[in-house]
């Protein structure tokens, strides 16, 4: 009996061993998946405020007017929609405006932070090896500001008219309250800007809302292009 016991083969290992590498690979994949998800959540998190003492580019990317002026009068003759442009003022001076880039006959206007007026004929010069070169920094269509603790940015919106432009509304925004990225503001019943959409005046007339884009100007050109377009 003792001899029989000594020559018996030990039991074969569980088939579970075949699956161990698969489990390890899946575990590594799960760690990657969770890490990517956390990364995306971080990206979606609200951005922090601008840094005092840094330079930024600012521009209005979206601006909406009420269907009528303040007081109820229609914008233009023939009941057509207004022709929108805006001005940005800082330290008491107009530092940027879109009087040459009026968006005609709309209630919602959009502007981009990059652009160039290049005709087809000029394009050939740009593309040829001996031709002119476009520098991304020369194409930035935004105001440059320096953030100080008590600094303010004043936005004024207008309806472009042949005789006299109509002032649609305006407001001053403390620079330290801005966040890098898009800052949406709504005009309340008292004509003041608020980030709370619920407080937006329903039928005040004139300027209704706008989105102010703030971009760190110290970024590499590639990121500036991505942020401003």
């Amino acid at each position: 009996m003792a001899e029989n016991t000594s020559t018996e083969s030990p039991p074969a290992p569980s088939p579970f061993y075949y699956g161990v590498p698969l489990l390890i690979v899946l575990a590594v994949g799960a760690v990657f998946f969770l890490g990517e998800k956390d990364g995306n959540e971080d990206k979606a998190a609200p951005s922090r405020k601008v840094v005092v003492g840094k330079d930024y580019y600012v521009l209005v990317t979206v601006m909406e007017f009420h269907p009528a002026k303040q007081g109820g009068a229609s914008w233009d003759a023939g009941n057509s929609a207004p022709d929108l442009y805006y001005q940005l003022s800082w330290n008491g001076k107009t530092i940027y405006h879109t009087e040459n880039d009026v968006v005609k006959n709309v209630l919602i206007a959009k502007w981009f932070g990059l652009g160039a007026n290049v005709s087809v004929m000029d394009l050939r010069k740009v593309l040829s090896s001996e031709g002119q070169r476009l520098s991304p920094r020369n194409l930035i269509k935004a105001a440059s500001i320096f953030v100080e603790p008590n600094g303010e940015l004043v936005i004024r919106a207008y309806d472009d008219d042949p005789l006299r432009d109509d002032f649609a509304g305006g407001c001053a925004i403390p620079l330290a309250d801005l966040e890098p990225g898009d800052n949406a503001y709504f005009i309340d019943a008292e004509g003041k800007p608020t980030r709370d959409r619920a407080r937006m005046a329903a039928d005040r007339g004139g300027l209704k809302r706008f989105v102010l884009r703030v971009v760190d100007s110290a970024q590499p050109v590639e990121k500036l292009v991505e942020a401003l377009r």
Partner: peptide
């Protein structure tokens, strides 16, 4: 573990370019 990393981790990055007009396309 290394195999898992090899399958899920970034393996290669393609940086597209368009010759002389790359800056224009980038814009």
């Amino acid at each position: 573990g290394l195999l898992g990393l090899g399958l899920f981790a970034p393996c290669m990055t393609l940086h597209p370019a368009f010759g002389d007009i790359t800056p224009l396309v980038r814009l």
